[in-house]
Design a protein around this nucleic acid. Sequence first.
DNA 1: GTCACTTTATGACTAGTGGTCAATTCGTAC
DNA 2: GTACGAATTGACCACTAGTCATAAAGTGAC
Lengths: 239, 239
Amino acid sequence: MTTSHKVTSVHIAGACRGRLGILGLEERRNREKERRRETILKAARRDFMKKGFKAVTVDAIAQRAQLSKGAIYLYFKSKEEIYAQVLIRDIEKFHDHVADIFHGGDSASEVLTRFARIYTDFFLNERELFRILMAFMVQPNPLNISEQINDHIIRNTNKTIGIIERIFQYGIEKGEFPGCRNIRQCRNALWGLLNGIIALHLFTGREETREERIRSTISGGLDVFLRGLTTNQETDSKS
Amino acid sequence: MTTSHKVTSVHIAGACRGRLGILGLEERRNREKERRRETILKAARRDFMKKGFKAVTVDAIAQRAQLSKGAIYLYFKSKEEIYAQVLIRDIEKFHDHVADIFHGGDSASEVLTRFARIYTDFFLNERELFRILMAFMVQPNPLNISEQINDHIIRNTNKTIGIIERIFQYGIEKGEFPGCRNIRQCRNALWGLLNGIIALHLFTGREETREERIRSTISGGLDVFLRGLTTNQETDSKS
DNA sequence: GTCACTTTATGACTAGTGGTCAATTCGTAC
DNA sequence: GTACGAATTGACCACTAGTCATAAAGTGAC
C-alpha cells in the first residue's frame, strides 16, 4: 500500500522523527478507520432502506462490506448504532436543502410555504427515512446507541424546528403573523402538522395516490393554518 | 379422524339429548376458548404497555397467563397478532369517549376543541398506546398479522378520522367554517396536527413539563387552525 | 530479514428468541 | 374403566445479536 513509503519519509525527519512518526501513523489509522466506517454505513444503508431495521442481519451488512461480523463490532457498538448513524447522515442532507430558505423580500407566508414544500419533497424522496425517524421518536425503549449519537439525532431534529421558529420570528417581526401569539406553540404545531399528515398518509390508502394526497393535504392544511396566522380576529364560534 | 367422531355423534343422535349435549359442550368449549384468549390478552397487555413490543417474550406472556408457550399459539397466530389484538381493544375504548361528542347547540369550534381535548387526554393516559399505534403506522415491514386484524386497526383509525370529518361537516353546514375549502384535507390536517404534536413532545424535553407542553401546544395550534377555519379572507401567500 | 509488539480481523460460539410438534394429559360419553 | 378427541406441554428447531480466543497483518528497531 501507500503505507511503506510514507513511513520511510517520516523516518528521515530527524529529531522529532519518532514523535511525528507516531502521530502520522495514528492519523493515518484514524483515516483508515473512518473509511471503514463509511464502507459499513454505505453497505448498511442500502439494506436498511430496502428492508427496514429488523429484516437486515449484521451478517448481511458484514458480507456486503466485505468484513467479518466481528469486525463490524470494532466500528460500531450495536446494530442499532449503525442504523442511527445512517439516519444522522441522512438528516444532515436535509439541512442542505433548507439552508437558503430565506430569499430577500419574501413574505413569511411564502417562506413557510416553501419550507413545507421542501420538507414534503425531501421525505417523499426519502420515505424510509421518514418512517425510521418517526419510529425512532416513538420507540418505547431507548435504542442501544451511545448517548452521543442519541444527542446528535435530537440536536438535528431541534435544528429543523429551529428553522421553523426563525420563520415565525420573521413573520412576527414583519407584522405578518398577528395570529401567532406564541412562537413555540406555533412552531411545534406546524412541525406536528407536517409530520402528522405525512405519517397518516404513509399508513392509509393506495400507493398510487399517496404522493398527491400528501401534497394536497399539506397544501390545504397549511392554507388554513396560514389564514389563522395572518388574521387577528378572535376565534369566535358564532358568525 | 374427523370422520370417526362425526359418525359417533351421529350414532348417539337418535335421542335429542345426545345432540343437545354435544352442542352444549361445543358452546362451552368456545366460551372457554374465548376466556383463555382474554386471559392471554390481559397478561400480554400489562407487559406490552410496560416494556414495548420487542422486550416482551412469548414465554413471559405464557407464564403470566399460566399456560405453556405452545398453548399461546393455539389461540394466536403470532406474538404480533397478540400485540395487534391488544391494540384493537384499546382503540375501541377511545370511541366510547367520543361517542357523545356532539352536544345539541354547540358550535363546531366547541365540538372540535372538545374532541381535541378528549383525544389528548385519552393518549396522555395511554401514552404507551399512542407510541405503539404510531410505531404500528410507521412500521417499514407489515407485521405478521392476519389481513383481518390489520384491516380492523385501519378501520378503527378511519373511524376516528370519520368523527373529525363529521365535525367539519357540521361546521360547514352551520356556515361556521368558511375557511375549510376541502373537508378531507382539513380533517387529515387536523388529525396530523394532533398526532404530530403529541409525538414531538413524547420525544423531546423533560417529563415533568411534558403534559403541560402538549396541552398548551395543542391549544395554541388549534387556536390558529380554528381562526383559519372561521375566517374567509384570502391568504396573501403565493405558491 | 527477523523479532517483539500493537492493531485489526476472524468465525466459532453463546445466549436468547419466536415458533413447532410429537408426546402426554384431560374431559367427556358410554 | 375405557375409548377418544381436544387441549396442553415443553423439548426442540431455526435464527440472529453480540462475544472472544485466536490468528493475521501492520509497524518499528535492530
